[in-house]
Design a protein around this nucleic acid. Structure first.
Lengths: 149, 149
DNA sequence: ACTAGATAGTATGACATCAAACTAAAAAGG
DNA sequence: CCTTTTTAGTTTGATGTCATACTATCTAGT
């Protein structure tokens, strides 16, 4: 039977662990979020609220490391919920401009308020210093993966 | 504007990083795998090869932390590819027994051989000691999330 | 200016995933 | 034994994601 080297196994195990954490944390978080918001939708609302300026779907797709098609889909769902508005960019006939609506701002605040306690509870699992220690390592991995796309 | 505490922000950032890594590493791995195998399919073949014994869809679903419906779907795709066989369990009219076919064993070996070099390359991003350091922390988080499901 | 190439947004089809509803069969409790 | 509850597997519909292909528009190079 073919096998991997111990180092390869450890790396595979790491990716596996990451996959499970992603799955569990997403579904946990989505259970807390109001308006049937998904993590993708919440992240987008949050991004638009925190970072001022004009955002096109293409810029958002790049910021979130997803394809333009994925962003189209998420934006359409948020628009259907009335949380963002999408208008043509007068300066570029191909582009659109994404704007948070007032309802979107309220939804984002409500979502943040709902998610906060869950994140606070998670400190029982991982101390802030553990979080701080692990983040740079994962960033290195993420950057490497991004470059080898 | 409502905000999260720095600790909450760090935790949210960690989950975000994990989501991106999961996405990037999965698509990178799937580009290497033969037979159009997905990570889910490869993991399942690998599991069946490594761990002897009789596996029902329900046991597999529990082992992989996915719903039975998800496992049904993955098993159907692997069966369509001829890599597993699904037969009724004579001892339990509700259950089925999952078995690797010879083609499935060959596909798993080929997939492992194809994925190995990619994992080896990833050592440029993360040294084995960094991997070893980060795994226990993530395990703690995963276990906590699993208990708070 | 015109053409060729790059970029923006969209559409489609595939896959993984979940939740919820459903059927069939086993297990448990009277 | 019979009824109730639990369990196994499936189905359906929603979401996120990708790759690919397509249209419209912008940009650059000639």
């Amino acid at each position: 039977m073919k096998t991997l080297s111990p180092d390869q196994q450890a790396l595979f195990g790491l990716l596996n662990e990451i996959g499970i954490i992603n799955q569990l944390s997403s579904s946990l978080l989505e259970r807390l979020l109001p308006h049937g918001l998904t993590v993708a939708q919440f992240s987008l609302l949050n991004h638009l609220q925190r970072l001022e300026g004009e955002w096109s779907p293409a810029r958002l797709a790049a910021a979130f490391q997803v394809t333009r098609g994925t962003m189209t889909s998420t934006l359409q769902r948020l628009e259907a919920k009335g949380f963002i508005s999408l208008v043509p960019d007068p300066a570029d006939g191909r582009a659109k401009i994404v704007t948070l609506t007032d309802a979107g701002r309220r939804a984002r605040d409500a979502a943040l308020a709902a998610a906060g306690p869950g994140l606070a509870e998670m400190k029982d699992a991982l101390s802030p210093s553990e979080v701080a220690a692990v983040i740079p390592v994962l960033q290195k991995l993420r950057i490497w993966l991004d470059m080898h796309r």
